[in-house]
Amino acid sequence: MAALWCAATGVQAQAPQPAGGPSIYACVDSKGRRLTSDRPIAECLDREQRELNPSGSLRRVVVPPPTEMERLAQEARDRAEVERRAQAAEQARRERVMLVRYPNEAAHNAERASALQRVDESMALTRLRIGQLERQQKDVEAAMARFAADSAKMPNGLFQEKADVLKAIGIQKKALAELEQEKQRVHLRFDTESAQLRPLWASPPPEPAQPAPILLPR
């Protein structure tokens, strides 16, 4: 165990003495005893030991190797730190991309207006189609009304035509509702981007990189 501890801490039990003279190791063991030795103390492998100069001044503190739980906890912290840095780098990359695409608020507002216009145009076409289908529904219902006195003479095709028209109206109304949701998503997207971009727009632009001087041969 002493060999493992020495390997983990970088201390050799019989290492050559440093230029400042022989070391003195001191610690308090698990029983509260103050121990000293000219080499790492086996009774204090699980706790800090002070390495002293011959004068008694502190040369360094030798820490014990981590326990399995401490090692796992440190690895978890290291992984979390790596992930945090990766997320920060990705966020910085996204901000650079957004700044290139939207260098100022006017450009961002213009893109919002363009996106909303496309949705509005689709909604207008959908409403137009719903109006056409509703007029077709009225025509079918008017044709069916002529057979109200004798429904047995009503052509079967009228029932199917009405069912088809009602189904088509339902599809178009569903599409219109989805377009309404898309319009809300567009607003939410641009509102979120605007909140991210405002601090970036307010920051001074980075200094352009200076080209390296070209040395001409003499």
Rank of each mutant, 00 (worst) to 15 (best):
A2G: 00
A8E: 13
T9E: 03
T9G: 04
A13T: 06
A13S: 12
P16T: 04
Y25I: 04
D29K: 09
D29R: 09
T36A: 09
S37D: 14
D38Q: 04
D46P: 06
R47F: 05
Q49I: 06
R50T: 05
S57Q: 13
V61I: 15
P64A: 09
P64M: 07
P64H: 10
P66T: 01
T67C: 07
E70Y: 02
E70C: 02
Q74R: 13
E81W: 06
E83L: 10
R84T: 03
R85N: 11
Q87G: 00
A89V: 06
A89H: 03
A92W: 03
R94D: 12
R96F: 01
V97T: 14
P103S: 07
N104D: 15
A107Y: 05
E111P: 04
A113W: 02
S114H: 11
A115I: 02
A115E: 06
Q117A: 14
R118F: 04
V119K: 11
D120L: 09
S122E: 12
A124F: 09
T126A: 15
T126E: 10
I130Y: 12
I130M: 14
G131C: 09
L133D: 09
E134R: 13
E134W: 02
V140P: 02
A142C: 00
A142D: 15
M144G: 02
F147Y: 15
A148M: 01
A148N: 13
A152C: 01
K153G: 00
F159Y: 14
E161L: 13
D164F: 04
V165N: 11
L166P: 00
A168V: 06
G170R: 10
K174E: 15
K174M: 12
A175S: 14
L176I: 02
E178T: 07
E182T: 15
R185S: 12
H187S: 10
H187I: 07
R189T: 14
E193C: 07
S194Y: 08
L200H: 05
A202S: 12
P206W: 05
A209E: 14
L215A: 08
P217A: 11
